[in-house]
Amino acid sequence: MMKLGNKLLNFLIGMVILVIIWQIVIWIGGYPEALLPSPLSVGKAIIALIVEGTLFEHLQVSLGRFLAGYFLAAIPAIILGMILGRLPKVWQVFDPIVQVLRPVSPVAWSPFIVLWFGIGNMPAIVIIFIAAFFPVLLTTVTGVSKIDRSFLKIAENLEIRNLKLMVTFIFPAAFPSIVSGLRLAVGTGWIFLVAGEMVGAQSGLGFLIVDARNTLNLDYVLAGIIFIGVSGFLLDRLIGLFEGWVGKHWGMT
Rank of each mutant, 00 (worst) to 15 (best):
G5A: 14
L9P: 00
I209R: 01
M122Q: 12
G206M: 03
F112K: 03
T168F: 08
L40D: 01
W91T: 03
L9N: 03
M1T: 10
L59R: 05
V114N: 04
A124T: 08
D211F: 00
A185G: 11
G200I: 01
K164N: 12
F11C: 03
Q202C: 00
L18Q: 07
W245K: 06
V93Y: 11
N121H: 13
V93A: 15
G251D: 08
I130A: 07
V136H: 07
G85L: 11
E197H: 07
L40S: 02
F233W: 14
F11I: 06
G181C: 11
V16A: 15
L184S: 13
V16M: 10
V90S: 12
A201C: 06
M1S: 12
L182V: 05
I226L: 14
V126P: 08
V93P: 00
I119E: 14
P111A: 12
F192H: 14
H58R: 00
T188C: 09
I170H: 11
W116Q: 04
A68I: 14
P76G: 09
A132Q: 09
V107L: 15
W116R: 02
N162T: 06
G247N: 14
N121Q: 13
K44A: 07
V61Q: 01
I75Q: 08
I21Q: 03
V167R: 12
V114A: 10
F112T: 13
G196N: 11
F129L: 12
L165A: 06
V210E: 05
I97W: 01
L115K: 08
Q202H: 11
G143H: 09
I170T: 15
V179G: 03
I113K: 06
I20V: 14
I178P: 01
Q99N: 14
W116F: 13
R213Q: 12
Y70M: 05
I154H: 00
I128M: 09
Q99R: 14
G240Y: 13
D95Y: 13
F134R: 07
F134Y: 14
M198I: 02
Q60H: 11
G118H: 01
G81M: 09
I239M: 15
D211R: 01
G206E: 03
S62T: 10
E156P: 00
G81A: 08
